[in-house]
Design a protein around this nucleic acid. Structure first.
Lengths: 233, 233
DNA sequence: TGACGACTCATACGATCGTTTGAGATGATG
DNA sequence: CATCATCTCAAACGATCGTATGAGTCGTCA
């Protein structure tokens, strides 16, 4: 029992915590680009120029480091994304308001993927955690995905008269599904360059596609099939 | 150099190939439920009640086994899915034809997930390979995903007058994005039961949402923003 | 019968993994 | 100075991984 055992040691030493921060930075980059399982503690500590045991000392385990990587960014990301949605939600209902909400959301989701490496890493990290979870469920879904999806749900309801909450939730799933797939495509595309439409085209398409889809979801969707499931079959 | 080295030995021995088939069956199940990296050769050979070295003897390597698991099912799956789309493509254009195409496609994508375990494994396998590729790119995308997406693109063009091929391709991405996300949700839901709307509701929503999205994609989508990107920003 | 190919077997190899250990360095505190 | 907590270090531990090796079993055929 040497270390603080995944407890912040709240040290006062000047150089204390430098290794800790370096580990978090390096781990964030590696986890984002390779995933949790494919990133070894040895590689992290080598890139961070510190000892192998530092991970276990500061974070208790590899998983503890992974959780702390997320925890460090949780509030910032959630607040930023919620702010974007709230910014969109203040728009008074009217023609084009739905498109504006969708465009803001899609951009805030996709944009970090193209430019600098900071937000990009974070988005890739989130995407990986969505597909292959290692965090306790209440941490990721409860702290990030949940509030964001709920906020988008409300924004959709506000800008689309007649849209029920249940239908809006389904629409949110449809929208995030498209965005996650696009993010995956971008990630793989950066690894091995392949053909594909530029991102601005894709975002524009998703906005237009989804706006129509949302508007078509008003009405008695959940239970029956008002406009009719196809006649045959 | 003992074995056939990933070459079908086309043996005539009565019991020859029994181990091979058992390995393929067990590996298919394990790869589907746990993924490639998380499935060890030792677990496969243990479940198949054969020796550890059998994998390397029959398939050359773990990756060779993985490829053969796919190769064994490639034609059947592709033909089945293409048949479903062609069945949908024969529908003469008209009101509701687009919904019918989408419903057939979505059902053929989602339905194997719920019922028996055979098609379910395959769908999970495909989903995993989409997200975390291990196969040579020309094998998966070229043999399955490519033809299917191309067929759906043409079916959309046929049932939606004025839809350009480029726009249709974007729509296909939107549709598959929703379906893949739904498949992921089903997979995780089967592991840890959580709340969520029943699948029939989700499929109905995807059909309605996507039909509206497709119809909204006719017109000069690719380059400009005919109906306007949101005014501000 | 004896040689041969096909196949399975137990076992070992080398590598990598996450984690643990105990000693040493450092700086604040009494 | 002595003490103590904080932090870093080299080194090792035990486990698991994919793969390789060589002997052994069995059916076929000259």
């Amino acid at each position: 029992m040497h270390g603080p055992r995944a407890q912040r040691p709240d040290t006062g030493v000047d150089s204390g915590g430098q290794t800790r921060e370096r580990l978090l930075d390096v781990a964030e980059r590696l986890f984002a680009s390779r995933g949790f399982a494919a990133t070894s503690v040895r590689r992290i500590t080598r890139d961070a120029a510190c000892n192998l045991a530092a991970v276990n000392y500061h974070f208790g385990s590899k998983l503890g480091l992974y959780e702390e990587v997320f925890r460090r960014r949780l509030e910032a990301v959630r607040d930023q994304r919620l702010a974007a949605i709230r910014r969109a939600a203040t728009i008074q209902p009217g023609p084009g308001a739905l498109e504006e909400v969708l465009y803001i959301f899609a951009s805030s989701f996709i944009e970090p993927l193209v430019g600098e490496s900071h937000g990009r890493m974070l988005t890739e990290l989130m995407g990986r955690e969505m597909l292959d979870p290692h965090l306790p469920p209440e941490m990721f879904r409860g702290e990030i995905a949940g509030p964001v999806q709920e906020a988008l749900t409300q924004a959709l309801c506000r800008t689309t008269p007649g849209l029920s909450v249940d239908a809006a939730r389904l629409c949110v799933q449809s929208i995030t599904g498209q965005l996650v797939q696009t993010a995956q495509r971008v990630r793989r595309q950066s690894a091995t360059p392949m053909a594909g439409p530029p991102l601005t085209i894709v975002v524009d398409h998703i906005v237009r596609f989804s706006a129509a889809g949302v508007r078509a979801s008003v009405g008695g969707a959940p239970a029956g099939s008002p406009h009719g499931r196809p006649q045959r079959s």
